[in-house]
């Protein structure tokens, strides 16, 4: 039955080559023909498939990112980023929505992704895989780590509970003290003509971050947009470069 289905025009149009890949040639063609598997090279050094060597942390980071994207999109169906509704929407998500563990999947997934990204960086360091010719990809990876932390941080505000607002208050108040661009940072007073200060509470780095002089509606909306669209968009670009450069820099690192 299955064999017959594999012979149909319909099946063949989707999976070129047909049948379970058995010969060496067929197995190579599977990878070459699939847009998803094509992230991989066709063949690898044997240590590159050993868990003992790779720890699989980079792959897991990407996979958890996908889980977070999907669960995040699901959460967006119920969540409204306003002070009036944000908190109650979060409560409702757990209590009124069937299969109400999406917020848990999203939150614990976010924690897990931070850990897997750290461990991935740790593995790359310990195997010396940042060395030439992979310097640039290491830098891209550092940016990806930063973006992961920022994504996690912006998401922290959205439940609009005590935990959220004070963590973000403390976090965003650091921006007050940005040298030159924060109104309580060193050098801000230099950016003034006479008595007119250009960097004030209404025009500094913190203001750009939370959209107001006080934590409120605008901050919630800005963090929401950054969390759902802005940062994911940027991180996907960097991820694409990261994966591309792994291949272009000679695949997984091997001893010289």
């Amino acid at each position: 039955m299955l064999e017959k289905f594999r012979e149909t025009q319909f099946y063949k149009s989707i999976f070129r080559g047909g049948g379970v890949p058995k010969s060496r040639r067929q197995r190579m063609m599977v990878v070459l023909n699939s847009v998803f598997l094509h992230l991989h090279p066709v063949r690898l050094p044997k240590h590159a498939v050993k868990l003992k060597f790779t720890w699989c942390m980079g792959g897991l980071s990407f996979f958890i990112f996908l889980i977070l994207t999907i669960s995040g999109i699901l959460l967006m169906f119920y969540y409204r980023p306003t002070i009036e509704y944000a908190y109650t929407d979060i409560i409702d998500l757990a209590e009124q929505v069937p299969f109400g563990i999406m917020r848990e999947v999203h939150r614990w997934g976010a924690h897990a992704m931070v850990i897997t990204v750290w461990l991935h960086m740790f593995r790359v360091f310990m195997t010396g895989s940042y060395k030439p010719p992979r310097e640039f990809n290491w830098a891209v990876g550092v940016i990806l780590l930063l973006l992961t932390l920022l994504l996690s941080f912006t998401g922290y505000l959205l439940p609009w509970d005590q935990l959220a607002i004070w963590a973000i208050t403390v976090g965003s108040n650091m921006a007050r003290a940005t040298p030159f661009f924060g109104h309580e940072g060193p050098g801000a007073a230099l950016l003034a003509i006479g008595d007119i200060n250009f960097i004030t509470m209404g025009s500094d780095a913190r203001f750009a971050l939370i959209g107001g002089r006080f934590m409120g509606e605008a901050a919630l909306l800005r963090f929401y947009v950054l969390h759902c669209i802005g940062l994911p968009f940027i991180i996907m670009i960097f991820m694409a470069v990261h994966f591309w450069r792994i291949r272009k820099d000679g695949g997984i690192s091997t001893p010289v």
Partner: peptide
């Protein structure tokens, strides 16, 4: 684009 982030009126 940078200026876009600093509205002229604040509803505070």
């Amino acid at each position: 684009m940078l200026r876009f982030f600093f509205p002229n009126v604040l509803f505070e």
